[in-house]
Design a protein around this nucleic acid. Structure first.
Length: 118
DNA sequence: AGTCTGACGTACG
DNA sequence: ACGTACGCCAGAC
């Protein structure tokens, strides 16, 4: 599965920018939107792309994602390969990822996390 | 303004 | 592999 870059939807981009959110949260969601279906990223990686080390804060943003599942927070997992959490329940997260072709083991870990870095 | 709490991560026994 | 401890930063209170 090659990581094909997907352009961020303009309407979604506007929606995020116009939302009453902190600058941090907006940047967070906009970065996340760049992750294509079938790929995953990590909280840490996401923070890093924002020139920040606030990976915990990233998690907080995901938990409060007002655009779920439009903003694909189900594509954000832990750096150790485990799935992390999901506002709508972990089962939903798994279902969405599987539907996009992401391999998940029975122990609920991402198989090819090494190819994640985008 | 101070303190606490996370969908986290790293280091160390 | 496992638990504990601590660091990290933004947001909530």
């Amino acid at each position: 599965m090659s990581a094909k870059y997907t352009t961020v939807n303009k309407s979604l981009r506007d929606k995020i920018n116009n939302a009453d959110l902190s600058d941090f949260a907006k940047r967070c969601y906009l970065e996340l939107c760049k992750v294509p279906a079938g790929n995953v990223t990590t909280y840490k990686n996401l923070a890093r792309k924002m020139n920040s080390r606030a990976y915990r804060a990233v998690g907080t943003c995901m938990a409060n994602n007002p655009f779920i599942p439009e903003v694909p927070c189900h594509r954000v997992v832990n750096s150790n390969g485990q799935l992390g959490g999901y506002a709508l329940g972990i089962k939903k997260k798994i279902a969405l990822l599987k539907a996009e072709g992401v391999q998940i083991s029975k122990k609920q870990t991402i198989q090819d996390l090494k190819e994640v870095v985008i």
